[in-house]
């Protein structure tokens, strides 16, 4: 039942409380209609299958909507800006904080955290959703690089690579939503 409860909550999130209530009622009504041909356990299985199928479809359609309406120009523009910031900060670190100037050092990534958050904050001014897509893109890029890189990468760097950029983007976006909100 825990799984069914979880599916119900997910449905409420995807199609709203009213929609989820009506959908579960529809599934129940259909199950009752088919109750002559299905036995008790069959009926319950059919009910569960239909609810899970609905969750899967709703998730897929919402994901497609999300990708279609993403502000890709702002996201890719800010991603390029993050790349520039990373180069500039590495050069700057070589003067003021040499241990962080190594590109494979977790300190390098940590040092870039405020700059990435700032880029995400600015991206949020163009489109409120952009920082979150930027974070997702940075996570995707980190996963790709870690998976396919043939270089030895330390665990600390892997962890920093996977968390610092996306987290900075998330914080930048959240800051823009809270601090940048007009009264």
């Amino acid at each position: 039942m825990a799984l069914l409860d979880w599916a119900t909550h997910l449905l409420s999130w995807l199609i709203g409380e009213d929609g989820a209530t009506a959908l579960l009622g529809d599934v129940r009504e259909e199950s009752m209609r088919r109750s002559n041909s299905l036995g008790g356990p069959g009926l319950l299985r059919s009910y569960h299958c239909e609810v899970y199928r609905s969750v899967a479809s709703a998730l897929r359609l919402r994901a497609v909507e999300c990708v279609r309406c993403a502000p890709w120009a702002t996201v890719f523009g800010s991603y390029v800006l993050v790349g520039g910031v990373q180069c500039a900060s590495t050069v700057a670190f070589s003067y003021v904080w040499p241990p962080a100037a190594q590109t494979t050092s977790p300190l390098n990534l940590l040092g870039q955290f405020p700059a990435v958050a700032l880029v995400a904050y600015v991206a949020g001014a163009f489109d409120r959703a952009a920082p979150f897509f930027l974070g997702a893109l940075m996570l995707f890029a980190a996963l790709l690089l870690i998976t396919f890189s043939r270089e030895e990468i330390s665990t600390e760097y892997r962890l920093a690579f996977l968390t610092v950029g996306p987290l900075a983007a998330l914080i930048g976006g959240t800051l823009h939503r809270t601090v940048g909100r007009k009264p």
Binding site: I15, V27, E50, R53, A56, S57, A58, L61, R62, E65
Partner: peptide, 13 residues
């Protein structure tokens, strides 16, 4: 045979 989920997401859109 589309799912109820697809029907409701489409209607909400």
């Amino acid at each position: 045979n589309i799912s109820f989920g697809a029907v409701y997401v489409t209607l909400q859109r």
